[in-house]
Design a protein around this nucleic acid. Structure first.
Lengths: 225, 225
DNA sequence: CGCAATCGAGAGCGGTGCTCTTGACAGCAT
DNA sequence: ATGCTGTCAAGAGCACCGCTCTCGATTGCG
């Protein structure tokens, strides 16, 4: 059982993270200021360092929280009982919706890395959650016989063993070609969302909702769903 | 004929841009400091403002220069006499090579937008150059009869008229489906490159070169090339 | 040649991340 | 209850940032 001291400490640390998230949504990651967080919480800037080791550590916490929130959104949108194609579309829409609702957090996760900052290993499992959802859909589709039998090709230099295991495991319908396409559609999804969010589609696309639906529908096709 | 004053002014302005590019490669866009540029050039920080109105203006110049350099690389890699599929692969490889050679400039162009900075209209034509190359390949392929005849569907809410004109214009083989796929592969290409550059493939892909080749080969397939 | 435009340098403003010291406070053991 | 120990907020301070202003020096055109 945590002491009273530890409890209030955890509470204040949480308040700092919340304030940082609010500031992130307002001014973006690069402009996130520890002093502003301290101002918002009504304490001295130096006091914040009692709870957060550095600005980078605060960023890391926001990154992990972001990956977790996005992963939870993706998992929540996946209905294992639905058809693989519909599952794929639903997850894609959920990822996009989360990105549109949290543009700065999305930019923090999938935009340019913050200079001088390298994400610690802690972020990896949280970052993988969306990929796990996609892999589960692909694996279920293979087991359901939706995907045609493959050549059985295997090449760990293209897709690593760990990732291959997530991408439906060893199933006759999942060969290296399918795995490559899975990684491709995965990155394509975020390419599409990033382009929309970062303004590279302005002037080219009017109805972003409908365009996204057609785009991920096309991606489902290359996935074989 | 420019006066001697104007010439030395242009020269110093160029030196400032070069130093900024060097600093960009070292510390990234968000940490680009006008004072450090001034230090590197051995002049007072205030003197730089004689040549550059603001840090944002310097960033804009770097962005435009970056788009132009990338566009030139793409154009230079495109051999109009080659087969459409080979042209597509060559342009993709050239774009990736440029990105790998100039990671920070690439991040400036296709990563998270710099906070508090909105790209002015001047950047649009430079940014469009890569898309123009892709559109030219697609149009040539259609005129060469490589693409199957389409449905003739047209929907400016999906792909705007200006972009549609770039994407091969009005040709029976190019319907809205092809245009959507073109925009999709375009953003997918940068999604793939961004994922590689920003580290989202670490642990999943070992041989990035071969993986990229297979990925853009797949993209060529969805393009119909 | 003289005057106006241009230029470099310096000081200064308010902001940042981060460190160090100081003093107040709480909790626990004696 | 007292004294010790660990935690805390606060402030001063360092070096850096973007940007502005002023002040001489220099330059080049009329």
């Amino acid at each position: 059982m945590p002491t009273a001291r530890a409890r209030v400490r955890a509470e204040i640390t949480g308040e700092i993270a919340d304030a940082a998230r609010r500031q992130l949504a307002e001014v973006g990651a690069a402009a996130l200021s520890l002093r502003a967080v301290a101002r918002e919480l009504g304490m001295a800037s130096s006091a914040v360092y009692r709870y957060v080791p550095s600005r980078d550590d605060l960023l890391t916490r926001l990154i992990i929280d972001g990956y977790d929130a996005l992963g939870a959104a993706a998992e929540g949108a996946d209905d294992p009982a639905a058809a693989p194609r519909d599952r794929w579309l639903a997850v894609c829409r959920a990822v996009r919706a989360w990105a549109l609702a949290h543009p700065h957090e999305y930019a923090l996760l999938y935009g340019s890395p913050v200079p001088g900052y390298t994400a610690p290993r802690d972020t990896v499992p949280a970052a993988a959650r969306v990929g796990v959802v996609l892999g589960r859909i692909l694996g279920d589709a293979a087991r359901a016989g939706v995907l045609p039998e493959g050549s059985g090709e295997r090449d760990p230099a293209l897709v690593s063993d760990e990732t291959a295991a997530v991408l439906g495991g060893s199933h006759p319908a999942i060969d290296e070609d399918v795995r490559v396409r899975a990684l491709l559609t995965w990155s394509s999804l975020f390419g599409v969302i990033s382009f929309e969010l970062f303004g590279h589609f302005t002037g080219s696309v009017a109805d972003h909702d409908r365009w996204f639906d057609r785009a991920v529908g096309e991606l489902a096709g290359t996935l074989g769903l």
